[in-house]
Design a protein around this nucleic acid. Structure first.
Length: 121
RNA sequence: CAAGUAAACCGGGUGGCUGCCCCUUCUCGCGUCAAGCGGGAAGGGGAGGAAAGUCCGGGCUCCGCCGGGCAGGAUGCUGGGUAAUUCCCAGGAGAGGCGACUCUACGGAAAGUGCCACAGAAACAUACCGUCCCGAUGACGAAUCGGGAUAAGGGUGAAAUGGUGAGGUAAGAGCUCACCAGCGGCCGGGCGACCGGCCGGCUGGGUAAACCCCAUCCGGAGCAAGACCGAAUAGGAGGACUUACGGGUGCUCGGCCUGUCCUCGGGUUGGUCGCUUGAUCCUUCCGGCAACGAAAGGGCUAGAUAGAUGGCCACCGCCUGGUGGGAAUCAGGAAGAAGGCUGCGGUCGUAAACUGAUUUCUAGCAGGUACAGAACCCGGCUUACAGGUUUACUUGGCCC
RNA sequence: CGGGGCGUGGCGCAGUCUGGUUUAGCGCGCAGCGUUCGGGACGCUGAGGUCGGUGGUUCAAAUCCACUCGCCCCGA
């Protein structure tokens, strides 16, 4: 994930917070906003209430891995905000949680379905 | 073997797939003179003992410089180590422990000031209950009154002017003596803190983590320091001053310097450097009780910037729990077996099965695998931490 | 990186500077009783506190000192 795929400035985060849509469950809050680019940009937030530095870094790494491994529509800014329960969650729990939210946001590409259509053709 | 004391150290491993940051080399596309921009491949490196808390100290950088005074702060037995310290080492004194050993904010209360509640007569100057003597009224006693002596006894308190014993006295008191404690002096040992001995007079509270005194030390700010490039906005408003005023990183004085300085308003908050070779690490050897220092040889060991070492899987290791099996040790062990001795009445007899406890090996099962993430860099301190290893020593039990 | 503040019954605060005089106090809340036909309000009574933790100084600590834990705020 190169520098251009990250949300880096406070103004970028503020734009997503202000104008984006919110999708949430017990583990994570997603905020999404179309960015007009040909790629996605991601931001990861783990507040101080999540835990100490080790825990916060771990949660952000897990989210970063999930964002890399999940295939989505392009042209979106997505901010991942960890909630308290995320500190104790495993990779698979977080992955399922994020996939559910992305599906509701209609930017998730379903692997099984896309493979199915490719074979049909 | 058990309990403990003191040091030093480790703090998961292997493999596969797939990602991240940095460096080196190569390469592709755009450009095509180059710089540059975008992408790819290979190789190498990539968190800690505390990276943490930010409690001390130093390097480094900037604040224009020098000197004096005041304020403020820190430290506080002695000697040494160090770049430096509130750290470390060695030693002294005191306290704790049977001991190995551990702990200590450990200068000064005859420089001065303050405070010491309640109780108590008194918490800086004193005598409440008492004790004793003399005198008067009594009857020589008791009692009362007056004068004097005393600080042993009672009582209060956290603390009452050395403690114990003996002598002494009207009763008493360091009044005298012995020992102990404290103070002062002399002699001896030690660089010193201090220790040992002798002598002397005879002794008057506590609190400086109350103000304070003494000695020593300290300029301020911090890598968001600071330097350069680029971008953007403004090129303003108000005030102070011009024989002096302001500024010059606590205040103040003197000297030097400077022509500006303060407040408000506005813009940017991008890149490069600083940025990792350093009081560095390892080995050997020398000096030193040690901390540590000197020399020689060798090594290069993270540099991010919404912030890099991750994710998934497999196997193994380690720990905990209960289950099955085996072994060892200890205790018990019916019928008192076999058997020994016999004065034929008896007496001595744990080997075994079996039971219980502890330790250990092993099989498979379940759960767990700490504390914690570099952000300028070092030296310490403090705090957190599953579990494990090694060495030295102490006490107790058993065996030789 | 630097600086400052807070922690006291369930909640919000005094007391800490200047240690003791008080059993650590006040308001709201809680419980019981009274008052009322009943409730509220009011009156009376009562329960409830490791003073964040550990250690130290002192005769004596919520108060002084050191370390430590948690929370909050400010500046660059």
């Amino acid at each position: 994930m190169g520098a251009k795929e990250k949300l880096r400035k406070n103004s970028q985060f503020a734009a997503v917070y202000e104008h984006g849509k919110t999708w949430a469950n017990d583990l994570v809050v997603l905020k999404t906003l179309p960015n007009g680019l040909e790629w996605n940009r991601y931001g990861f937030v783990a507040g101080k209430r999540i835990g100490k530095a080790v825990v916060r870094n771990r949660v952000k790494r897990l989210f970063r891995e999930i964002a890399r491994a999940t295939s989505t529509e392009t042209g979106w800014d997505v901010v991942f905000i960890a909630r308290n329960q995320a500190a104790k969650a495993s990779y698979h729990e977080l992955e399922a949680s994020v996939a559910g939210l992305l599906n509701r946001a209609r930017i998730l590409i379903d692997k099984d379905r896309s493979e199915g259509t490719a074979e049909a053709r």
